[in-house]
Simulated scan of single mutants.
Amino acid sequence: MKRVSEFAKAKGISRGRAYQLVRSGALHAEVLGDGSLILDDTAMAWRPRKGRPLSEAMAWHLLAALDSAEQEGLRDAERARIRRHLSEIKKAEHPAQELAEKVSARAELREFAAHLDDVVDLRADPRVLVSGVGAAGSGMVAGDIVEGYVAPNVVDSVIRDYILKERRGGNVRLRVGRAPQMGRAAVAADLADWGRVRELREADRIVRELLLEIA
């Protein structure tokens, strides 16, 4: 556990930048009684991005490539970029984290709190494409967590029907966007976004398995 000032010094960034990362959800922190923040051990795995994330369309192309899905209409230059990104992911200490950073623009993440009585129904709702924690092959039991993708044109009705309250750190994580396909690569990226040890371990397992299949 580290204070924000200690983390900032270790990473060579300003305290303001560190607080910004906490507010954005990139780093997980606990609030002490005096109001100060303590970062958990997983925060030390964070590193500055090497470049901007891929566009939404290219993010899904990269995920599809990792899933070995057939893709038509890609230009030679785009295929070369995807091969380069796959090579960088393969070389990373935490390949799932590298993947998640590259595809962070795939959808907008919104967090909510839902009543525990509604969790099962929400997870089974056809408007929610389940991913991340609780998805098939994730290695994680969902419990009271619901995580998945929701199309922009139905997200408001989902929020209304289940009386979801927008809350950072809530038990419902909805990524608003049109996911063209849902494979193991997206599940791994979603798990890595949690920034916690167990989720990152399972995410790395999935990505390494996928990399072996396309080797």
Results as ranks from 00 to 15, higher is better:
P95K: 09
I89W: 08
R52P: 06
D41I: 09
L86Q: 08
V133T: 07
Y149T: 00
V120T: 06
S87E: 15
S55F: 02
M44G: 05
A114M: 04
A45N: 08
P48N: 05
L37A: 10
E70A: 15
A142V: 13
G35V: 01
W46H: 09
H28Y: 08
E56C: 10
H115A: 15
P152A: 02
G12H: 04
V103A: 01
G148D: 08
S87N: 12
L99I: 07
D41R: 14
L109K: 01
L122F: 05
A96H: 02
D118L: 13
R75F: 09
L62V: 08
I38P: 07
P95D: 09
D34L: 04
G132F: 05
V150H: 12
V130N: 07
A92S: 04
A64C: 03
E78R: 03
A96G: 04
R110D: 12
G35K: 01
R79S: 05
D117N: 06
G143K: 12
S104I: 03
W46T: 03
M44I: 10
G148R: 07
A26W: 05
Y149A: 00
G51Q: 07
L122Y: 04
D40S: 14
R81V: 12
Q97H: 09
G132T: 04
E30T: 13
G16E: 02
M140T: 11
A100C: 07
R84L: 15
P152G: 05
Q20Y: 11
V120I: 05
P95W: 13
S138D: 08
S55P: 06
A92H: 03
V103I: 01
S68M: 12
R17C: 02
V22H: 06
M140E: 12
M140P: 11
R81T: 09
D41N: 10
R49W: 02
V133N: 00
V119G: 08
G143P: 13
E56L: 13
L32T: 07
R75Y: 11
E98P: 00
